[in-house]
Amino acid sequence: MELQGKDLHISIGVKQIVSGVSFHASQQQLIGIIGPNGSGKSTLLKTVYRVLKADSGTILLDGKELSSMTLRESAQKLGVMSQINEFNFDFTVEKMVRMGRTPYKQLMEPDHPDDLALVDSAMQQTGVTHLRDRDYSTLSGGEKQRVLIARTLAQQTPCLILDEPTNHLDIKYQLQLMELVKSLKCTVIAAIHDLNIAAMYCDYLYALKNGKLVGEGSPQSLLTEAFIQEVYEVSARVVTDRGHQYIHYIPTVF
């Protein structure tokens, strides 16, 4: 599946958040969106997963305009892993993961054995099988996050959007999640805070600052010391060791 954004302008209220951003993720590519806080990463992704509407510009899924699809159609193609959300009522972990099958279900249709098998394997992949009968609200932040990731996996979409889902995860699960996403052979667009993770897993990066595209390219070509200084306003040293790129931040006195 191919996902493409063309000349997107997005505002919230009267404030323009994203101006003239385009991106392109081809089949099975993992694309990273980087940039400092408030650069418009999340706004851009929220528009892709249809929570926000763009003022102008188009988003294409395999060449078909996203806005011409029903939410149900796009939910069968686009899965979203985002930060955990709080809500007032409680479901068991298994029920939460089962809700990932919603886009495929008719109104009264029960969950079939195939659905349950998908739910089981999704819970296994994120290591929450032992929590299946627990109430979601009683879980820790990291456990909740993994349950929501399992829900997205159960949704079985060819395209994934990662809206900073690693926020509540400790480093082991962050790396596991990225490995997992990489192994799914999906087309992925991810907003990523951690430049080392971006360098390790992304095929291509887009850098945003103040809602504008300020750079794009492979991690090797884009993440230079000068670029990090310019976009993030921090000094850094970029080291390549056995083919891996590492970014070390250098503390400065404010």
Binding site: Y49, R50, V51, T70, L71, R72, E73, S74, A75, Q76, L78, G79, V80, S82, N85, F87, N88, F89, F91, M99, G100, T102, P103, Q155
Partner: peptide, 13 residues
């Protein structure tokens, strides 16, 4: 019950 955003992501308006 999950909220508007999660509903949208799961294909429910």
């Amino acid at each position: 019950l999950l909220g508007e955003e999660s509903a949208t992501v799961l294909g429910i308006n």
